[in-house]
Amino acid sequence: MGKKFASVFSPLALYNLISALGWSFIFLNVIFGYPKVGQPSFFLVTKDLVTYIQCGALIEILNSLLGIVRSPLLTTAAQVFSRLLVVIGVFQLLPQTPATKSIAYVTLLLAWSITEIVRYLYYFFMLVRKNGAPKFLVWLRYNLFLVLYPTGVASELFVIYSSLPIAEVSYSILFKRVLQISMLTYIPGLPMLFLHMLAQRKKVMRSWKNDAKKQS
């Protein structure tokens, strides 16, 4: 009992729990806040919060670098920095980007927040629960991405694309080129991550079927 209690308050478990709570707050803002204030007010009142919470993911790069978690360093860094490019490069430096005031910002936050709530809670329970994450959470983890990944990526690309003319005018052609190159990285990146998740999903679903056969 004491060991389980200690693990709940370990730095890694707390990080995952706090991250899940942070993204839950954003999700609730989308569900209850957006219908009340609409755009562009919704973007203006949430962009800083989203930026702060996303910047917390830098800890994941450090955890991977130090070997605290088994996540590959390059993959983790690529995922985190692609998000940071959106929240800092667009939300903070180019807030006048038209897409940030559109429904694309809302779909982006929905895709990000649902994905991260499930992911961080999954990691949290894997750390603190003897039997691992609850089955419903495992199912969400390995099925929701089929919809959330394409939705999130499409929203990200639309937001970045919308910022290109403003980036050149507000800063420089170099900044615009950085954003364009970042968009090109999605071409190899998305299929690689999506196929990896499909492989993981297949493994998990097969394990469930085998367990069901043993119990029948």
Rank of each mutant, 00 (worst) to 15 (best):
M1W: 07
K3G: 11
S7H: 08
F9Q: 08
L12T: 06
A13E: 04
Y15N: 09
I18M: 10
S19Q: 14
A20M: 06
A20C: 08
W23Y: 15
S24Q: 01
S24H: 01
F25A: 08
F27V: 00
L28W: 09
N29Q: 15
N29V: 00
F32S: 11
Y34P: 04
P35T: 15
G38W: 10
P40A: 12
S41N: 12
D48R: 11
V50D: 09
A57W: 12
A57K: 08
A57S: 15
I59G: 12
I59A: 15
E60S: 10
I61H: 02
L65A: 15
L66S: 06
S71M: 03
P72C: 07
P72R: 09
L73F: 15
L73D: 06
L74D: 07
T75L: 14
T76V: 10
Q79W: 09
S82D: 11
R83D: 11
V87L: 06
I88V: 15
G89P: 05
F91W: 11
P95N: 09
T97H: 01
K101W: 13
I103Y: 13
I103G: 04
Y105K: 05
L110K: 00
L110C: 08
L110R: 00
A111P: 09
I117N: 04
R119G: 07
L121W: 06
Y123E: 04
F125P: 00
M126R: 07
L127M: 03
P134V: 05
P134R: 00
P134D: 02
F136S: 04
F136D: 00
W139P: 04
L140H: 04
L146S: 08
L148F: 13
V153P: 07
E156W: 03
E156F: 04
F158A: 12
S163E: 03
I166W: 00
A167D: 03
A167Y: 01
A167G: 05
V169Y: 12
V169D: 13
Y171S: 02
S172R: 05
I173H: 03
I173S: 08
L174T: 00
L174P: 00
R177N: 07
R177H: 07
Q180M: 13
Q180R: 06
I181V: 14
I181C: 05
S182Y: 02
S182K: 01
S182M: 06
L184F: 11
L184V: 13
T185A: 13
I187W: 03
L190Y: 15
L190V: 15
P191L: 12
M192Y: 15
M192K: 08
F194H: 10
H196A: 10
H196D: 13
L198N: 12
A199I: 01
R201H: 14
R201V: 13
K202M: 10
K203G: 02
V204L: 10
M205F: 11
S207G: 10
W208Q: 11
N210E: 15
N210H: 08
D211W: 05
D211R: 13
A212W: 10
K213A: 13
K214C: 02
Q215K: 14
Q215W: 03
